[in-house]
Design a protein around this nucleic acid. Structure first.
Length: 204
DNA sequence: CGAGCGATCAGCT
DNA sequence: GCTGATCGCTCGT
């Protein structure tokens, strides 16, 4: 499966990190079990020139302050009062950037992920593809919430990323980001990336 | 101090 | 395709 990604991996522009995160594996130690899933879809957000980002204009608030830390930390927030979203901080200290992990392909601990999502092992939607194919679903399945805000993925025992595989440009699709229509010109930036043909992405 | 709203999801039409 | 659920965060007063 490969070793854990080190600090250098994250110390770059969020668009670069987003592309390289495709094919990498999220590992979550939770409730005495190991859950893992391969990243198949993510989006980049920048602190300047990107009106879609919570921290656009390099605005610092209690929620966004972690994105100004060194790359490799977890930026997790609650959306719509109900769902957690898992982002990874990119760039150096003082630079604002993050990558939203939007979808993953389950590898290990699928039974526990079903329990986390649906309350039992029966996948009542009848389809393994429905477990982690969206940012909120992914967090629910893998037990990721705001208690992991600021967790350092380079040193944490609870949440980290391992090598997995590299995805070539030919096997990658870029597109507009999802549900950011408010972002004026930034809504058209092709900052969303996913693995071509993968059936675990959140939408076409 | 409170109104308005959101990087979503499920269920229904 | 549309809508309700549900609440922390942000900003204006």
């Amino acid at each position: 499966m490969g070793g854990r990604l080190e600090r250098d991996f994250y110390m770059k522009d969020p668009v670069e990190v987003a592309k390289k995160l495709l094919g990498k594996i999220i590992v979550r130690k939770h409730g005495g079990t190991t859950l893992s899933a391969m990243i198949v879809e993510c989006e980049a957000y920048r602190g300047s020139g990107d009106k879609a980002a919570h921290f656009n204009g390099n605005k610092i608030t209690d929620r966004t302050k972690v994105v100004y830390e060194k790359g490799g930390l977890a930026y997790i927030y609650l959306i719509y009062g109900m769902y957690s979203c898992f982002n990874i901080v990119t760039g150096g200290e003082g630079e604002a950037g993050a990558v939203l992990i939007r979808a993953a392909e389950p590898i290990e601990g699928i039974e526990q992920m079903c329990i986390n999502r649906f309350g039992n092992y029966e996948n009542r939607h009848g389809n393994i593809k429905n477990i982690t194919n969206g940012p909120g679903k992914l967090c629910m399945a893998m037990g990721i919430d705001r208690s992991l805000y600021g967790e350092d993925l380079c040193t944490s025992r609870k949440l980290y990323i391992v090598q997995g595989k590299d995805i070539e440009n030919d096997d990658m699709v870029s597109s507009k980001r999802v549900n950011i229509d408010y972002a004026q010109e930034a809504k058209d930036f092709h900052f969303r990336f996913y693995i071509k043909g993968n059936s675990f992405i959140s939408k076409k």
